[in-house]
């Protein structure tokens, strides 16, 4: 099976360690991962903000970059949702029949990481070890667009040493919402604060999710508060092994703190 990694522009630029974790994880499970260099972005930000026209070349590029792969795996529930639910409409609005065919052909082969592990590879024990207290936030796209259900939790439960705690009110949105976070900062932060109230009540050391975008929002709040809880993409937990058990560094640099490396 030829597995292509769709890193997403956001992770590519800001959170490359998530991509490295996905690569390490799939290779540890005995698979070869390819990275089509022509890929850039699924167009989610443009589409959700109303810039449909600008998204057309991005959709075209996506279809071309991943055309000949058996499976396209991405560590982002929201980008997987964009490809599966919205690319067809973009192709239609562009009036491009060939693109519509290509998009329809590719969409079913696009998997969010936990779907790919559980549904395609049929594994839940990925041989990870992570001896920390962890809580999982199902992002809105994980929950309602992709319907990931308990796949992430089934994977996390098999991780050695992990202490997995339920997140109260887990199904409520964290308040990120893409440009919403910038256009409506007060409501966005109010929602994030309520989410954090529940996260902190679990006394978890690590908050994980299937989308770094929501984690960037919650992590940005947590680090500003010096809350003593950090965020991690769940791929990084699933990639963690016994020997490399030093705690990962925080995503966010507190202002005034000494420089922290991001890798």
């Amino acid at each position: 099976m030829r597995i292509g990694l769709f890193i997403t522009c956001f992770n590519d630029t800001l959170f490359p360690r998530t991509g490295k974790a996905v690569t390490a994880l799939l290779e540890r499970l005995g698979h070869t991962v390819v990275f089509p260099a022509e890929q850039t972005c699924c167009g989610q930000m443009h589409l959700n903000t109303g810039y449909q026209r600008e998204a057309i070349p991005l959709v075209r590029r996506f279809a071309r970059a991943f055309a000949d792969l058996d499976a396209i795996v991405t560590p982002s529930a929201s980008c997987a949702g964009t490809v599966r639910d919205h690319h067809a409409r973009v192709a239609e609005s562009a009036g491009d029949d060939r693109l519509a065919t290509e998009v329809a052909d590719i969409a079913p082969r696009v998997y969010e990481l936990t779907e790919f592990l559980v549904d395609v590879l049929g594994v839940t024990d990925v041989g990870a070890a992570f001896p920390h207290r962890v809580t999982y936030h199902p992002t809105c796209h994980s929950l309602r667009a992709l319907r990931l259900g308990d796949r992430p939790l089934r994977l996390l439960r098999e991780v050695r040493g992990i202490e997995l705690v339920d997140l109260p009110h887990a199904d409520e949105c964290c308040g990120f919402g893409g440009t919403f976070a910038m256009k409506n900062p007060d409501v966005s932060v109010a929602m994030g604060t309520d989410k954090l109230r529940h996260v902190l009540s679990t006394r978890a050391e690590v908050l994980c999710a299937a989308d770094n975008s929501c984690l960037m929002h919650l992590g940005g709040l947590l680090s500003r508060l010096r809350a003593g809880t950090r965020v991690m993409h769940l791929a990084e937990i699933l990639a963690a092994e016994e020997k490399a058990m030093s705690p990962a560094r925080p995503h966010h640099r507190a202002p005034g703190a000494r420089r922290t490396e991001h890798v």
């Binding site: 490359p16 992590g219 709040l221 507190a254």
Partner: peptide
């Protein structure tokens, strides 16, 4: 109200 994430010193594609 939120800290801003810093771009990675090396992108995934560069790595």
């Amino acid at each position: 109200s939120r800290d801003v994430p810093t771009p990675a010193p090396e992108s995934f594609r560069a790595w």
